[in-house]
Design a binder for these strands. Structure first.
Length: 287
DNA sequence: ACTCTTGTTAAAAC
DNA sequence: GGTTTTAACAAGAG
């Protein structure tokens, strides 16, 4: 489940590897992955990616053609794997994947980009929810405008969070997951941020105290910052562009740790369903 | 065979 | 009528 830290890792790696390389060929193996745009190949071939930025979990690739961008989203199982021209390393490792998926391309490969230097970028996505679609600048602007501020940004102030939560009748979990209000948090980091803030995810957002809001603000900012520092989290599907797993997995305190002891208070961590998602919390110290 | 997994969104429910 | 919840999407693991 790539969330902000994982997408940021991909962005940084892609930026260092493919910016200013000319795209010599594109193969589309699944049309859904390019939003059924039959012109994708002919439009992209011959162009260069001149910039890659990110808002929330969305990637925005700028091409050196007038008003042409690619908007990318990994959704749950999307991966972007880069392979240098002379590289025969096996990629895509992950304990849930069988051995034949280590070579590129494989049965989950949806798009293949070839660069003039002979290197490749593979867009792999088992469930086909992710995409890389062509967009005009106006569509890029619209997509960015549809996303709330990221934790850690200047716009994401304590006041902003406080006003966001006030009078809300939904759960803290649902409120934090809504990308229109806050961009970048997903199932893993919402649970982890709530643990840091000592707040149960199933609490009603509008009933949080000022102190709760303060702690939640700090926690949401710090969890993403720390996760980026550790290279993201690999729970099941995420790997970076080298097929490497993220190191934050070992730092998780509650996510996927149900029936284990809380590292803070020793109580047994529980898993419930909140906002339609598997939700992990410590009944001992999250109130 | 049946359940569970999740990011986003459209539809349904409130 | 704005807010909240649910279902759908796809494909695989257990």
């Amino acid at each position: 489940m790539p969330e902000l830290p994982e997408v940021e890792m991909v962005r940084r790696q892609l930026a260092s590897k493919i910016i200013h390389k000319k795209i010599s060929d594109v193969q589309v193996l699944d049309w859904k992955s390019v939003d059924h745009n039959k012109d994708f190949q002919q439009t992209v071939i011959g162009s260069e990616i001149i910039n890659i930025d990110r808002v929330g979990k969305y990637l925005f690739l700028s091409l050196n053609k007038e008003d042409l961008y690619v908007i990318g989203h990994l959704k749950m199982t999307g991966r972007m794997i880069y392979q240098a021209a002379d590289d025969d390393t096996q990629y895509g490792g992950g304990h849930s994947l069988s051995g034949d998926l280590l070579n590129q391309p494989h049965k989950h490969t949806r798009i293949i980009y070839t660069f003039v230097d002979g290197s490749h970028l593979y867009f792999n996505d088992m469930r086909k929810f992710g995409y890389m679609k062509l967009a005009k600048e106006s569509e890029v602007m619209d997509q960015k405008a549809a996303l709330g501020p990221e934790p850690g940004s200047k716009e994401y102030s304590v006041t902003y969070l406080s006003e966001l939560m006030s009078d809300r009748k939904t759960t803290v979990k649902a409120a934090l997951l809504n990308q229109r209000d806050i961009a970048g948090l997903g199932n893993i980091y919402v649970d982890e941020a709530c643990w840091r803030a000592e707040i149960r995810p199933q609490r009603i957002a509008g009933k949080l105290s000022d102190n709760d809001i303060d702690k939640l603000h700090t926690a949401t900012c710090s969890i993403l910052q720390d996760a980026v520092m550790y290279g993201g989290t690999t729970f099941r599907d995420y790997t970076d562009t080298d097929g490497q797993q993220g190191n934050f997995s070992d730092e998780l305190k509650v996510f996927a740790r149900q029936e284990k002891k809380c590292p803070r208070c020793g109580e047994v961590i529980k898993k419930d369903r909140v906002a339609g998602r598997g939700t992990h919390f410590c009944p001992g110290c999250q109130l």
